[in-house]
């Protein structure tokens, strides 16, 4: 340690790293450990009972099902939107480009009530869907709509820079070798974009799984039908069932950690495939 220290020209290593580790421990690590310790004190039987009651199981199905479908929809349309933003010029393009980040900037509660107003029976969109017999607000379909809203920028913003960096030469080479436009896309562009597209998909999915604010207004929160898993934690807390809330939180945290590892792996793959850092 002392040997390497003498090679450091720049000052402040001890101070900055010490501060970083202390603050990280106080704000993030120690409170997170508290969740696992609390869950550990619960006993295995209690824990399993808490995380596998019918209402909680139904919430997993909704949360993961809706998150998966929303992420898939966002992957398809997010790729198209990123493509349009990179490859075409059209009026209002800069506005569209800036507003893609709206779900990052708009507080989730605001998004939640706006979507509910839009898709309720008397709302602009709800009114159009009502004659078709489609009810969105206060059904699982509403959850899906909210999760699409929240996840879209993840796909667009991970794919967009990769598309921008793409040199035209590869596609030109493909065409000069006799490929048509679709073949050039499928065999030249798509493989380059694929890791970023999967990263965007995984990020949108991970965000959707934990999402709370934008969903609870439009979901209607009907037990066994339209309750999401984060809401189950809130419900347990409101009943002063701290142990039950913690048990569900542990399940969610473990899933988050797995998704985080998957996303890190995908990002490394993207960097390798495209020669881009991060």
């Amino acid at each position: 340690m002392a040997a390497t220290r003498s090679f450091r020209v720049l000052p402040g290593f001890g101070l900055s790293l010490g501060y970083t580790l202390t603050w990280l421990s106080v704000i993030v690590l120690i409170p997170l450990v508290a969740v696992f310790l609390k869950a550990g004190s619960l006993g295995l039987d209690h824990f399993i009972a808490a995380v596998s009651s019918p209402r909680v199981l139904a919430s997993y199905r909704l949360t993961f099902g809706a998150s998966l479908i929303a992420a898939l929809i966002n992957t398809v349309f997010g790729l198209m939107l990123a493509w349009a933003l990179v490859r075409y010029s059209f009026p209002g393009k800069r506005l569209v480009d800036a507003l893609v980040d709206l779900p990052f900037a708009l507080p989730t509660a605001v998004a939640g009530i706006a979507l509910t107003a839009l898709y309720a029976k008397n709302g602009w969109v709800g009114k159009l869907l009502e004659p078709l017999g489609i009810q969105v607000a206060f059904t699982p379909l509403g959850v899906l709509i909210a999760l699409i809203f929240i996840g879209l920028p993840f796909v667009v913003r991970t794919v967009q820079p990769i598309l921008e960096d793409l040199d035209t030469e590869y596609e030109e080479a493909a065409v000069s070798l006799g490929a048509n436009r679709w073949q050039a896309f499928l065999h030249v562009v798509f493989p380059t974009v694929l890791p970023a597209l999967l990263t965007g998909f995984a990020m949108a999915f991970a965000r959707a799984v934990g999402e709370y604010g934008s969903v609870i207004f439009i979901a209607g929160n009907i037990p066994l039908v339209s309750e999401i898993t984060p809401l189950m934690i809130i419900t347990k807390l409101e009943q002063y069932d701290y142990a039950g809330a913690t048990a569900i939180a542990v399940v969610m945290l473990l899933i988050s950690f797995v998704l985080l590892l998957v996303i890190n792996g995908l990002q490394a793959w993207t960097a390798k495939r495209t020669g881009r850092e991060r």
Partner: peptide, 14 residues
């Protein structure tokens, strides 16, 4: 990557 609800819960537990 932590759900906002869990983020709040951890401080309730501490």
């Amino acid at each position: 990557s932590v759900s906002p609800v869990v983020s709040g819960l951890i401080y309730v537990l501490v």
